[in-house]
Simulated assay, not measured.
Amino acid sequence: MNTLVQVLLTFLVLSACLGDVITPRTHTLSSNMLKESIRLLDKLQQVEVSCKQMNVTNIFGDYKRENNTEILCKAATIAREGQSCHRNLEGIYYNLRSLVRERHKRPCPVAAGSTTSLQNFLKELHQVLQEEYKYQK
Protein backbone atom coordinates (compact mmCIF):
# COMPACT_ATOMS: atom_id res chain seq x y z
CA MET A 1 0.00 0.00 0.00
CA ASN A 2 2.84 2.38 0.82
CA THR A 3 4.30 1.93 -2.68
CA LEU A 4 0.93 2.72 -4.27
CA VAL A 5 0.70 6.00 -2.34
CA GLN A 6 4.23 6.95 -3.42
CA VAL A 7 3.43 6.17 -7.06
CA LEU A 8 0.22 8.22 -6.92
CA LEU A 9 1.99 11.16 -5.30
CA THR A 10 4.73 11.05 -7.91
CA PHE A 11 2.11 10.94 -10.66
CA LEU A 12 0.30 13.96 -9.21
CA VAL A 13 3.51 15.97 -8.91
CA LEU A 14 4.51 15.13 -12.50
CA SER A 15 1.04 16.03 -13.76
CA ALA A 16 1.22 19.42 -12.07
CA CYS A 17 4.65 20.07 -13.57
CA LEU A 18 3.48 19.16 -17.06
CA GLY A 19 0.63 21.65 -16.81
CA ASP A 20 3.09 24.44 -16.09
CA VAL A 21 5.30 23.47 -19.01
CA ILE A 22 2.54 23.15 -21.60
CA THR A 23 0.73 26.41 -20.90
CA PRO A 24 3.60 28.82 -21.69
CA ARG A 25 4.53 26.82 -24.79
CA THR A 26 0.99 27.04 -26.10
CA HIS A 27 1.00 30.79 -25.47
CA THR A 28 4.34 31.11 -27.26
CA LEU A 29 3.08 29.01 -30.15
CA SER A 30 -0.01 31.17 -30.67
CA SER A 31 2.09 34.31 -30.29
CA ASN A 32 4.45 33.03 -32.98
CA MET A 33 1.54 32.22 -35.30
CA LEU A 34 0.17 35.72 -34.81
CA LYS A 35 3.56 37.28 -35.59
CA GLU A 36 3.97 35.08 -38.66
CA SER A 37 0.47 35.93 -39.90
CA ILE A 38 1.12 39.66 -39.41
CA ARG A 39 4.38 39.29 -41.34
CA LEU A 40 2.61 37.44 -44.17
CA LEU A 41 -0.10 40.11 -44.31
CA ASP A 42 2.54 42.85 -44.44
CA LYS A 43 4.22 41.08 -47.32
CA LEU A 44 0.94 40.45 -49.13
CA GLN A 45 -0.16 44.07 -48.84
CA GLN A 46 3.08 45.25 -50.44
CA VAL A 47 2.70 42.99 -53.48
CA GLU A 48 0.50 44.12 -56.37
CA VAL A 49 -1.83 41.33 -57.42
CA SER A 50 -4.96 41.76 -59.51
CA CYS A 51 -7.13 39.65 -57.23
CA LYS A 52 -6.89 42.19 -54.38
CA GLN A 53 -9.92 43.83 -55.97
CA MET A 54 -12.01 40.64 -55.83
CA ASN A 55 -14.93 40.85 -53.44
CA VAL A 56 -15.16 38.83 -50.25
CA THR A 57 -17.75 38.82 -47.49
CA ASN A 58 -17.26 41.71 -45.11
CA ILE A 59 -16.99 39.91 -41.77
CA PHE A 60 -15.73 43.05 -40.07
CA GLY A 61 -18.83 45.15 -40.80
CA ASP A 62 -20.62 44.45 -37.52
CA TYR A 63 -17.59 43.06 -35.71
CA LYS A 64 -17.37 43.86 -32.03
CA ARG A 65 -13.84 43.62 -30.72
CA GLU A 66 -14.82 41.18 -27.96
CA ASN A 67 -14.73 37.74 -29.58
CA ASN A 68 -11.62 37.44 -31.68
CA THR A 69 -11.83 33.65 -31.85
CA GLU A 70 -15.04 33.81 -33.86
CA ILE A 71 -13.79 36.51 -36.21
CA LEU A 72 -10.45 34.72 -36.73
CA CYS A 73 -12.32 31.54 -37.59
CA LYS A 74 -14.40 33.39 -40.20
CA ALA A 75 -11.25 35.09 -41.50
CA ALA A 76 -9.69 31.64 -41.95
CA THR A 77 -12.66 30.61 -44.09
CA ILE A 78 -12.25 33.67 -46.31
CA ALA A 79 -8.47 33.17 -46.52
CA ARG A 80 -9.08 29.57 -47.61
CA GLU A 81 -11.41 30.79 -50.35
CA GLY A 82 -8.81 33.30 -51.55
CA GLN A 83 -5.80 30.99 -51.52
CA SER A 84 -5.68 30.91 -55.30
CA CYS A 85 -5.01 34.67 -55.24
CA HIS A 86 -1.66 34.49 -53.47
CA ARG A 87 0.29 31.75 -51.74
CA ASN A 88 0.68 33.84 -48.54
CA LEU A 89 -3.07 33.47 -48.00
CA GLU A 90 -2.48 29.74 -47.61
CA GLY A 91 -0.06 30.37 -44.75
CA ILE A 92 -2.45 32.85 -43.16
CA TYR A 93 -5.26 30.29 -43.46
CA TYR A 94 -3.26 27.56 -41.72
CA ASN A 95 -2.11 29.89 -38.95
CA LEU A 96 -5.62 31.15 -38.29
CA ARG A 97 -7.01 27.60 -38.24
CA SER A 98 -4.34 26.60 -35.74
CA LEU A 99 -5.17 29.57 -33.52
CA VAL A 100 -8.89 28.73 -33.33
CA ARG A 101 -8.74 24.94 -33.58
CA GLU A 102 -9.51 24.32 -29.90
CA ARG A 103 -12.83 26.17 -30.03
CA HIS A 104 -13.78 25.51 -33.66
CA LYS A 105 -13.08 22.02 -34.98
CA ARG A 106 -14.44 22.88 -38.43
CA PRO A 107 -14.18 25.98 -40.58
CA CYS A 108 -16.70 28.66 -39.62
CA PRO A 109 -19.44 29.37 -42.10
CA VAL A 110 -19.52 32.89 -43.42
CA ALA A 111 -23.01 34.12 -44.23
CA ALA A 112 -23.47 36.02 -47.44
CA GLY A 113 -23.89 39.70 -46.82
CA SER A 114 -22.17 42.92 -47.64
CA THR A 115 -18.87 42.58 -49.42
CA THR A 116 -15.54 44.33 -49.42
CA SER A 117 -12.41 44.01 -51.50
CA LEU A 118 -9.82 41.44 -50.55
CA GLN A 119 -7.43 44.35 -50.04
CA ASN A 120 -9.71 45.94 -47.40
CA PHE A 121 -10.27 42.55 -45.78
CA LEU A 122 -6.50 42.08 -45.45
CA LYS A 123 -6.10 45.54 -43.85
CA GLU A 124 -8.84 44.82 -41.30
CA LEU A 125 -7.43 41.37 -40.54
CA HIS A 126 -4.00 42.91 -40.07
CA GLN A 127 -5.42 45.29 -37.44
CA VAL A 128 -7.26 42.50 -35.61
CA LEU A 129 -4.13 40.33 -35.49
CA GLN A 130 -2.03 43.21 -34.21
CA GLU A 131 -4.58 43.89 -31.45
CA GLU A 132 -4.64 40.20 -30.53
CA TYR A 133 -0.84 40.09 -30.44
CA LYS A 134 -0.68 43.15 -28.16
CA TYR A 135 -3.36 41.63 -25.92
CA GLN A 136 -1.34 38.41 -25.52
CA LYS A 137 1.85 40.20 -24.45
Rank of each mutant, 00 (worst) to 15 (best):
M1T: 14
M1R: 15
T3V: 15
L9G: 14
T10G: 13
T10W: 10
F11S: 13
F11A: 09
V13A: 14
V13Y: 12
A16M: 15
C17Y: 12
D20W: 09
V21N: 09
I22A: 13
T23M: 13
P24W: 07
T26H: 06
T28A: 15
L29T: 05
L29C: 01
L29W: 10
S31K: 05
N32H: 07
M33H: 07
L34V: 08
K35L: 07
E36T: 05
S37L: 03
S37V: 03
S37G: 04
S37K: 04
S37N: 13
I38D: 04
L40Y: 09
L41H: 00
K43I: 08
L44N: 04
L44I: 10
L44R: 07
Q45F: 00
Q45H: 01
V47K: 14
V47A: 13
S50P: 11
M54R: 09
N55F: 03
V56K: 00
V56R: 00
N58S: 10
N58I: 05
I59N: 01
R65N: 12
E66L: 03
E70M: 08
K74N: 04
K74V: 03
A76R: 08
T77W: 00
I78G: 06
R80V: 08
E81G: 05
E81R: 01
E81S: 02
G82K: 12
G82M: 14
H86M: 11
R87V: 04
R87P: 00
N88H: 15
L89D: 01
G91M: 10
Y93D: 05
Y94E: 07
Y94Q: 05
N95S: 11
N95W: 06
L96F: 10
L96E: 08
R97M: 12
R97D: 07
S98V: 04
E102S: 12
R106F: 15
R106W: 10
R106I: 11
P107G: 08
P109S: 05
V110I: 10
A112S: 06
A112F: 02
S114R: 00
T116A: 01
L118A: 04
Q119C: 00
H126C: 03
V128D: 05
L129W: 09
L129F: 11
Q136M: 14
K137A: 12
